[in-house]
Amino acid sequence: MARTRHETRTAAGAGALLAFVLGLAGGVAAEETAADQSEKEIEKYRAMINDPMANPAFLNVDRGEILWKTARGSKNASLETCDLGEGAGKLESAYAKLPRYFKDADKVLDLEQRLLWCMDKIQGADLKEILSRKFSGPGKVSDMEDLVAYIANKSSGMKFSAQVGHPKEQQAYAIGEALFYRRSSIEDFSCATCHGDTGKRIRLQALPDFTKPGKDAQDTMGSWPTYRVSQSQMRTMQHRLWDCYRQMRMPAPEYGSEGITALTLYLTKQADGGEITVPSIKR
């Protein structure tokens, strides 16, 4: 948690320093230009770190594969018979169609929720222990993050195909949309406060607009899970939304809750048709 705080400060500090240096070069009358230049420098930095061969998140992908194939839990079973929506054990394109409705659970589930379902039913796994490591940290690996990295990577190069045909999927989508616009807490924020308009920035950070389908949502959703350089960890959308609610001054949302899944479905629908390239690497 301390690191998340540090990240915010470091990011703002680095941005300010970079902007300061560029400001000196550009002169006082060129604030817009300086900001544009900063954005270009940041773009260059993004391109520089976006090298799959240098992306540590592929270690998560490898660990995830082992976790998927290893017999564990009270039933000493692997996850290889787990049905992520495309059939038992079929991983290709599964992530591109999640969250989706699962008949056996009679619920719309995202990848994390479905994995927990399979760990419980197939493996008899100790979910409490697994969830105590839901997010990785120094000296703490997360089975959930590793499995998501492995499975999402099996949809890399494919396009999102958001599932909104089943009535429960339609309901989840509508709840996700309502949550997106819902204002609350001690700063009156909703998701739409920061992601409700096109071409806006917070400090120097560009903000994707999620109120409409298209490129912003596609680029964003298609690049999670991602290796966060500033956190030295691979993170999933589950963590990104947890972090958004942190910044919105809300309490920590429940991991794998119906609300997080509904929001994820709403965002995935906005990203429909967008290409998945994961795990990516970001600041």
């Binding site: 703002a12 941005g15 300010a16 604030e31 900063s38 071409g199 806006k200 920035r201 400090r203 950070q205």
Partner: peptide, 10 residues
């Protein structure tokens, strides 16, 4: 302030 160019546009 003019000197602070790391500002948002919301």
């Amino acid at each position: 302030a003019a000197a602070e160019v790391s500002f948002g546009t919301l």
